[in-house]
Every structure is written in C-alpha cells, then in structure tokens.
Amino acid sequence: MTNALLTIDHLQTHFFTPSGVVKAVNDISLRVREGETVCIVGESGCGKSVTAMSVLGLVAEPQGKVVGGDIRFDGVDLLQLSPLEKQQLRGNDIAMIFQEPMSSLNPVLTIGEQIMEPLWEHLLLSKKEARAKAIELISLVGIPRPEEIMNAYPHQLSGGMLQRIMIAIAISCNPRLLIADEPTTALDVTIQAQILDLLREIKETYNTAILLITHDLGVVAEMADYVVVMYAGKVIEEGPVLELFSNPRHPYTRGLLQAKPVIGQRKKRLNSIPGQVPNLIGLADSCYFHDRCESCMSVCRLKQPELKQIDDGHRVACWLYEEESGLA
C-alpha cells in the first residue's frame, strides 16, 4: 500500500447561522492514497461538498468555519498554513473541478487566458511557453482545433467542452490530488461517460489521486477504488468499491443501492428511501438515520453508533452490527 496523500481526521466544519449551528461536516475521517480514487457519496446536503471545500480552505468565512480535526496533505497540516502557502498549494498540488462548468469560467475572458493563468502563476512560464502548453492541454482533453478554442469565450462552447476545459485548467500544473465536485452532474449522459473516461485516463497517466464527490452510484461503480458514504455530515459506511457494492451493510447504503435503476429490469417505480435528510440544526444525539430506517431499534433513538471495522477495510456505523459483534 502506498502512503496516504490526503488524510482527514475528525474534521468538523460548522456553519453559524442565525437559526443555529449547522454541523455540515461532523467528525469525518478519510484518507486518499497516491493514485487512488476515493468517492464520497451521499444525498444533497450531507456535507460532501463542504468536506471538499474544507480541504482547499474555501469554506465561506465568517459563517462557516472548520472547528475541529485536521487535514494533512503529504504530511503538511493544511489548516495551519498561511494564506500565501495555501495559495501556492491550490491549483498547484491540489486542484479542483467544479460542478457547473458554465458558471465556473469567467464569461469575459477567453478560454486561452483562463488556461494560461495558473501556468503563469504557479509554473512561472513565459507567455509563449504558457500558450504552447495551453494548446497542448486543450488537445490533451480531447478538444479539436485548440488554437481556435484559445480565442473563444465560454459562452461559445458547450457544457461538455467547458467541463473539459475546466479539467484542462485543473491538471495544468500536474496536481497530485484532484478534487472533483460532482463533475458530471450538469452534463448529459454521453458526455458524462466521456468526462469520466478522461478523468480515468488522467489518473492512469499522471498517477493523480482523485477525490470524487458524487451522488451517482453509477459514477462510483465506474471510477472508485474506495467509497465513503456520508449521511447528515457523518461517514456511515466506507469500504473498497467491490466489497461495498456486493455487501452493503448500512440500511442507508442498501437503500441507495436499491434505488438505482438496473438495466434489463423493468419496474413501475424505482425504490426510494422514505423521508428526508434531517435538518442539520440541533440534531439530537441519536442515529441521524433512525426515522427513515427500516430496521430501527430503540437504541438507535438514544445513542449514536460509531464507525466500526467489520471486515477488512469495510467500516460501518450502525447499531445492527454493534449488536452482532457484541453477541459474538
């Protein structure tokens, strides 16, 4: 096993709103090894994106704040870095791809200008070198006629092309970790597949670690080496992708997997998990999933289960398995 590149330990990111403290990320630990793809899965509002933002230090101050835990990148504590050191790290060692390619590029600057920027900033290339490298990057992400694209404005390209450009910008400085926050959500299915292929190619060629955030289990199955399932700001289950898909333990993970459409099976309605994600303000000290859980027990309403190892690399936070291990 290679070393962990990114280690998040007991991270807590809270948002202080007028109606109370929102514990968006509540005690999360995960690691990403070099060249590994880790997927964070969960419904909207479960803290996936906030985790990613916390890594880059982009949580909107002053409402949001990392209140506990630490994030280490290659041994360096990211939370202790000065703003300047953070700036040098972002884009250079850790790069991010956003969900909405249409709004993540500046509408008044040409594609070329936006690709060349990090090259000037981090690699200190001259204008000419940056231009050559930018053209190379555009063709690398599979866009034809790179010279013309250099002079185009974002509104002249399609969503898929823009996402490719975003990827080109993200990999321009050969980052060691690529954070992709739902990179395919805004795209249609065929383009989605192409973008995922591109990400996989990049991972294989440059041995880039990828932290992929998604709510699409299809994407997870295709991309991930290791999966982390989040619910209401907590990790509820994690494990290697094959293990997790073949042997899901947590009722929520099972529900998610059952909700997935299967090719070849015709159903009137897809399965769904009843209920809603709880309001993150003032959560009681119970299992956050208890009111939606099929196998809810009395202990679930009283105490929060801890993340426990059950198999090799497979960890789950559910009282069902605490009991089991207690019995054994």
Binding site: K86, Q87, S104, L109, E117, P118
Partner: peptide
C-alpha cells in the same frame, strides 16, 4: 459568483483576481 471560487481554488493572487477577473466584468 462561482468563477471567483474557481479562481480561489486555482490559487491565483489577489491582484489578478481583482483586475483580471473582476474588473473586466
């Protein structure tokens, strides 16, 4: 706007964000 968050995540310096990204808009 989201593209400003993107410039943040690219680690661009402030003067670049101000006069290259914001002002032209």
């Amino acid at each position: 706007r989201e593209f400003m968050q993107a410039t943040e995540s690219l680690g661009l310096r402030d003067h670049r964000k101000l006069f290259f990204h914001l002002l032209p808009n």
